[in-house]
């Protein structure tokens, strides 16, 4: 399960290989310092101009805020739970016209773009159906660990200890008491052809993963760690720094699953304590200081330690 990317044939060797073309254009209504926006921008660089984006309610629905659109690509905005199903319609609609009507194959790729609310909660059934049907599509979940667009309410992607506007910190509660749902394993159980976690602080890793996926057919799924300065109450300037801390502390493992075989694409050898990561965000501030919860902190660290032990690197 060790990293073995050095042998891979790739166009992306260093950051300098980041494609210059921009499909995400300036002037989006998204918050300053949005981590998920970097992920989308890089994903589109890797996937290119023939990508049709299917977007659903969530922050990135604002990438088409009338009369403007922030991406050069074609885009369809669909209801919350329907992203992968709408993608199916586009893929099938084009395919049948090519087969039946002798239409020239436009070579389109379809990318579903949703937040964690749609991916982990309300759209999980539609995603399950699409992967099961072997739909040839890409799914990028920008995971900011809560319903950000409605003001940061709990989602099943919210990690233990995070305060949200519906898991408030009180005398008897230390924020969210549930564990983050393991979407990677849920999706993996559907046998997609490609599945990966990505983080923008590792842009080369991310670009390579999209590159690798685009050489495959079938369902290609990505969960992008997405720092949310507004919801996490972090400094916009620290977005990439926090992203890096999540990777280095082991909170956000970077891995991929190719036809069911999981490889970690980056191993954080030192793994500093999770406090280093948690302290950068005021959504965790109650865990520190006089009234802080040593117990919750230990639980978070224990979960991370246990994860890395379990994959036996």
């Amino acid at each position: 399960m060790a990293s073995n990317q050095t042998t891979i044939d790739t166009a992306y060797k260093t950051m300098k290989d980041t494609p210059r073309e921009e499909y995400l254009q300036p002037g989006s209504p998204l918050c300053a310092g949005c981590g998920g926006e970097i992920a989308v921008r890089l994903a589109l660089k890797a996937l290119g101009p023939k990508t049709i984006v299917v977007s659903v309610p969530g922050c990135f629905g604002l990438l088409a805020l009338y009369p403007y659109s922030s991406i050069e690509n074609s885009m369809l905005f669909a209801p919350f739970a329907s992203g992968p199903a709408a993608a199916q319609g586009i893929v099938d609609g084009i395919r049948i016209q090519v087969e039946k009507r002798a239409m020239v194959d436009p070579g389109s790729k379809v990318l579903v773009l949703t937040g964690d609310g749609a991916a982990y909660d309300i759209g999980l059934q539609a995603t399950s159906g699409a992967i099961h049907r072997g739909l040839d599509f890409y799914y990028l979940c920008y995971d900011n660990e809560a319903y950000g667009n409605t003001g940061f309410q709990f989602s099943s992607a919210t990690p233990t200890g995070s305060s949200t506007s519906t898991t408030a910190v009180t005398d008897s509660s230390q924020g969210n008491s549930l564990r983050k749902k393991n979407l990677f394993e849920i999706w993996k159980a559907h046998n997609p052809s490609y599945l990966a976690t990505v983080a923008v602080s590792k842009p080369v890793d991310m670009l390579r993963k999209f590159e690798k996926a685009s050489k495959m057919s079938g369902s290609k799924l990505f969960i992008a760690f997405s720092v949310c300065p507004t919801g996490w109450r972090s400094e916009p300037r620290e977005t990439v720094k926090i992203d890096r801390l999540a990777v280095e502390t082991g909170v956000w493992p970077l891995k991929e699953s190719v036809n069911g075989r999981v490889t970690h694409t980056y191993i954080p050898r030192k793994r500093p304590p999770v406090e280093n990561y948690l302290k950068t965000q005021r959504r965790f501030e109650h865990l520190f200081g006089a009234c802080g919860s040593e117990h919750t902190l230990q639980e978070i660290q224990r979960d991370v330690d246990e994860y890395w032990r379990s994959i036996s690197i």
Partner: peptide, 25 residues
């Protein structure tokens, strides 16, 4: 000569139907 797809719910079925129509099918 058509593409026939079994969906996992009516919600998804309608979503795909509408999106496919926009492609010209």
């Amino acid at each position: 000569k058509a593409r026939f797809v079994n969906f996992e719910s009516e919600h998804s079925m309608f979503a795909a139907a509408g999106a496919a129509s926009l492609t010209g099918a």
